[in-house]
Design a protein around this nucleic acid. Structure first.
Lengths: 130, 130
DNA sequence: TAACAGTATGTAATAATATAACATTTATGA
DNA sequence: TCATAAATGTTATATTATTACATACTGTTA
């Protein structure tokens, strides 16, 4: 059994906010929302975000500069992420598909690179918007 | 046969710079490098970059906020991109693999989303660095 | 418990990335 | 040649992220 991270105060505040959000949150939007809880500066937010990404509690959506809670097994470091992004409503959902992840992990191995992680983002229209 | 885009002056200057670069270039680094050619403002750079991305001449490496020339058939709009990024030397190379692209296109279809494009970034150590 | 190491915090300043708004010019095609 | 779309030039500003430095908390172990 892997050691559970006990989160610090700022980390927990920011994780709670992201978990309860229905959409990816941007750093300065997070900052605005946690100012009433005593987090005043961008750096406080970015430090917590960095840590939460590192331990796999949240993911960064690179094409949007925004953060969402991990929707898979929540305790693992995330080296393999895939998302589906609606270009109309900006809904983002995490794809959890073992065939896909195996395929990609295997692909990276064959390519001769020592692979640490990957990130895949699909863009299109979600079921509602198409 | 698809109509060839004839690039404007600024677009051509910036594409030339990116093509001859051995590494991904960032917008403000591009700006610095083209100031001697009369491009003075960030917006001039971003507009050219937007257009070049749109017509598939270059790609944005989202995790790095940097741009590289397309290394595949250079005239096509790019809806399906995959890159291998070395976390040590920051070398980036475009992956061109028809099995991979077919697999991913097919995956997106099955997921029930109307898919427009995807972007995949692998991170690890390249052959030199591992 | 004291000392230490590692992690987290607080604060100010600033760097780096990107866009809005508006006026003007150039290219393309009917 | 007229209309339209695309590109340009310029200023200002918005958004995203980091550097630097001082301080405090947490867990381990001597």
């Amino acid at each position: 059994m892997q050691k559970q991270h006990s989160l610090s105060k700022n980390q927990q505040i920011i994780l709670d906010l992201i978990v309860k959000s229905s959409e990816p949150l941007k750093a300065y939007s997070i900052l605005f929302n946690v100012q009433k809880k005593g987090i005043n500066a961008p750096l406080q937010v970015y430090r917590a975000l960095d840590k939460l990404v590192e331990i796999g509690k949240i993911h960064k959506i690179e094409s949007r500069n925004a953060f969402i809670a991990c929707q898979n097994s929540s305790c693992q470091i995330s080296k393999a992420t895939a998302f589906s992004i609606c270009e109309s409503c900006e809904n983002v959902s995490e794809i959890s598909n073992s065939k896909l992840s195996k395929y990609l992990a295997n692909f990276a191995d064959e390519a001769g690179m020592k692979y640490n992680k990957y990130n895949l983002e699909f863009f299109g229209l979600c079921k509602k918007c198409k």
